[in-house]
Design a protein around this nucleic acid. Structure first.
Lengths: 254, 254
DNA sequence: ACGAAACGAGAGCAGTGCTCTCTAATCGCA
DNA sequence: TGCGATTAGAGAGCACTGCTCTCGTTTCGT
């Protein structure tokens, strides 16, 4: 909003702008700074529209909301999909932040508590912004193909269980077990690789159980957010908490 | 297609139509029959379009595909959402059929096998028609609110585990256990009610475990269909099978 | 055989993503 | 300081969407 008003009174504000550019030389030209602010402003407006009108994101509505022509948006985002991509990346980061913040508040030695904190952190974030959750963990947006840029941010949330697993293992708080012998060797290799990626210093059996718990976790959130619990479970918090404690036991956390 | 050609040569086919209506008096007037066929034809065209172009379903494209004006579609479906609703209901039924057929092929006494058959039946259906899966188990379609009509069909798939649980219980093939005492009473009541609805003659602890397995099952399918396994797990079948065997153990099936 | 109901086509409305052109503001650099 | 190059924004326009309304035609029940 500030940048918009600024642009509207261009000539009179020019001196002020020059002063600003002098005191903040590190941020580059004012054009670059205004551009960065515009990018944020557009994303914020889009996020707002996402929250109110649901998953149907209209570029024109965003432009209208900002009081500018729809064509001007294309100076900042080459297409609607690129705006979506930016929102998706931000959503992953925001989700990971929420989970990390929630987990950080728990005593390091309380491994079940840390798992529960991650789970509830993820769920609370999803409840707060269901449409953003749908954007990243729901069905892909109709004509939208997730580009490369979204792959890396999407891995952030799952990294958390890596450290929990490692800490549990080193503290001797993780029950050990071996995978059934019928588990195909290629799959075992992939599970080991997954453990390596999330920095989990555990065996394939423990990692497999953690991945299953992770799957159940997002299954539970999706069921709740997408309305699959309607008319079945009203005790949403209690049910989710029960599931997560059960999965902690399944993983072998003590 | 047959009905379209029939309508195109109306006058000459009139006698034929009368004859048909006489031999098939039980099905009602020919108009009613043609209408039913049209409904099916539109749904089929829509399903085809869903499979090729993804979740963005265009009424006009469906009409174009059928060689008729877009406005004519509104004689059969009052709105695009109503078409979607019809497709959703059919998808639930089709999915439930697939799971039932898959489960029916397994020896009644093999309870783990029956659970695995249901799971693989659901997964195979989802892999065959990912967009229809997304329609019913993904994020809700943008401007679409699922009407009452979809509630009942959506319960069909889950009914299957009810019979498996009951059979396992009566055969003494289901490990018993009690819920942790901290489980809130209202939640216990809801779980018992859920067991009643799916005809599962088991206690709340067994039902809770089954619901968790059910959640993991759909979490696993969603992860696979929505691309969350990309670059992580390539051994899709083996991984799913492993998960489902693990969940069978978690539920206590023997 | 006739009035009522249903059907299909076409035009039209408001909305969408996106492109192109044109003007004005701002930039880097001499 | 001024000038050519770059960038921002507006507006018109294209093809598309869901949906409504009207207008003939066809089929229905009686």
């Amino acid at each position: 909003m500030f940048t918009r008003a600024l642009l509207a009174v261009k000539s009179t504000a020019l001196v002020c702008v020059i002063l600003l550019s002098m005191t903040e030389r590190t941020t580059g030209s004012i054009r670059a700074r205004v551009r960065a602010e515009m990018l944020d402003e557009i994303k914020a407006a889009a996020r707002k529209q996402l929250a109110t009108d649901g998953a149907s994101l209209s570029l024109r509505a965003v432009a209208r909301d900002m009081g500018m022509a729809s064509s001007a948006i294309y100076r900042y985002f080459p297409s609607r999909d690129d705006l979506l991509t930016a929102l998706i990346i931000e959503a992953y980061d925001s989700l990971a932040d929420a989970a990390e913040d929630s987990e950080a508040e728990v005593d390091r030695a309380d491994l079940v508590g840390r798992w529960l904190a991650v789970a509830h952190g993820l769920r609370n974030w999803a409840l707060d912004r269901p449409h953003e959750y749908a954007l990243i963990y729901g069905s892909p947006v109709p004509g939208y193909a997730a580009p490369e840029d979204t792959i890396e941010p999407s891995t952030r949330p799952v990294l958390l269980i890596g450290t929990i697993l490692t800490d549990a293992k080193t503290a001797g708080r993780l029950e050990e077990e071996s995978l059934p012998t019928r588990t195909p060797a290629p799959l075992v290799m992939e599970i080991r690789e997954a453990a390596r990626v999330v920095n989990a210093a555990v065996g394939e059996a423990e990692m497999a159980r953690a991945l299953i718990a992770w799957t159940e976790l997002f299954g539970a959130i999706s069921f709740e957010i997408f309305g699959r619990l309607n008319n079945v479970i009203d005790q949403r918090f209690a049910w989710f908490d029960h599931q997560m404690r059960a999965m902690a036991g399944f993983v072998g956390l003590r």
